[in-house]
Design a protein around this nucleic acid. Structure first.
Length: 309
DNA sequence: TCTTGTTTATATGCTG
DNA sequence: CAGCATATAAACAAGA
């Protein structure tokens, strides 16, 4: 298994699969969803290897998006014209990477349901998940951004291993690149208790992995404004419950993997989201590029205004 | 026309 | 060795 270099992958192929790379890209943005073009951009910005042979790897990446159930397609809002849909991670695929590491994935995320229900429920799950995520953020903000008493219960809803996240886990890779503005105080609180930085981003990103019964008790988001959720989906038409997808081979993760951690953290873990190539120009990233469609959607600050009014 | 998305096929490497 | 995960190629359709 190749290991990430100390400082850079330079032009070498990163040890991450397309699924991992795509998951990184999606997790890197605050909305946890990106259009295809932004996923491309994220990967090319960080991994110079993927600045060449774009036809080849982009075809593979599109194949992965369609083929793997861990990715869900979210349609654009009518007032958000553009090509293609947004792509997000399925809320229940948070632990598909072994020990949360991007370097290896032994469980293939697979929805267990009949074909006729697949497309519909995938969207339903997505809508439900994203609404819950919005609720979660809203509740966090409503708590003045300084304290969220029930939040510790988020660790109770899943297996013990889910609280441990590999240094190569999504949140650990991305967390150092992006900080949720509205949850900074909470994130500090969590990182002190969890032992890993910005652990709360996992709970924010995948509320389904945690205690969702608590979430349902918080103030619901008003659906009055156009009946669209913060994520560009018509909630009324999509939020009618969904079946729970399961990994096809749920294997318990263990702390045993901890001893086998790679000795080095990739350069982009500790640096700002810039190119890993020392010679490459600093190109726009998904975080810094102006007015991408996803960024015009709900951000924590947008939710805050919703909460206030 | 180009991008996006789906599907099928094949090959390779790893794991149990 | 079978099965799985992943990579790659390619054909095709739909939409901006």
């Amino acid at each position: 298994m190749p290991r990430p270099g100390r400082n850079t992958y330079s032009d070498q192929k990163p040890p991450y699969s397309y699924i991992s790379l795509t998951a990184m890209a999606i997790q890197s943005c605050s909305e946890k969803m990106l259009p295809l073009s932004e996923i491309y951009k994220f990967i090319m910005d960080r991994f110079p290897y993927y600045r060449e042979n774009t036809q080849r790897w982009q075809n593979s990446l599109r194949h992965n998006l369609s083929f793997n159930d861990c990715f869900i397609k979210i349609p654009r809002r009518p007032d958000q014209p553009g090509k293609g849909s947004f792509w997000a991670l399925h809320p229940s695929c948070g632990d598909m990477f072994e020990n949360g590491s991007f370097l290896r994935r032994r469980k293939r995320f697979k929805l267990l349901m009949s074909a006729e229900h697949l497309a519909q429920s995938k969207q339903s799950d997505a809508a439900h998940y994203l609404q819950q995520q919005a609720k979660l953020r809203l509740s966090a903000l409503a708590a003045s951004g300084t304290h969220l008493p029930q939040m510790s219960s988020y660790n109770l809803g899943v297996s013990q291993s889910s609280t441990f996240k590999h240094p190569f886990a999504i949140e650990n890779i991305i967390a150092r690149e992006y900080k949720v503005p509205g949850s900074l105080a909470f994130s500090t609180m969590q990182s002190m208790s969890a032992g890993y930085p910005l652990h709360n981003q996992l709970t924010t990103a995948w509320p389904h992995m945690y205690n969702t019964s608590m979430i349902d008790t918080v103030a619901p988001i008003s659906m009055a404004s156009g009946d669209y959720s913060a994520y560009g989906m018509p909630l009324k038409s999509l939020c009618h419950g969904g079946q729970i997808p399961l990994p096809i081979k749920p294997t318990p993760t263990s702390m045993a993997g901890f001893s086998a951690l790679p000795p080095h953290i990739p350069a982009f873990l500790s640096n700002s989201p810039q190119s890993l190539s020392p010679t490459s120009p600093q190109t726009a990233t998904s975080q810094s590029s102006p007015a991408t469609p996803s960024e015009t959607l709900t951000s924590p600050s947008t939710l805050q205004s919703v909460a206030v009014h």
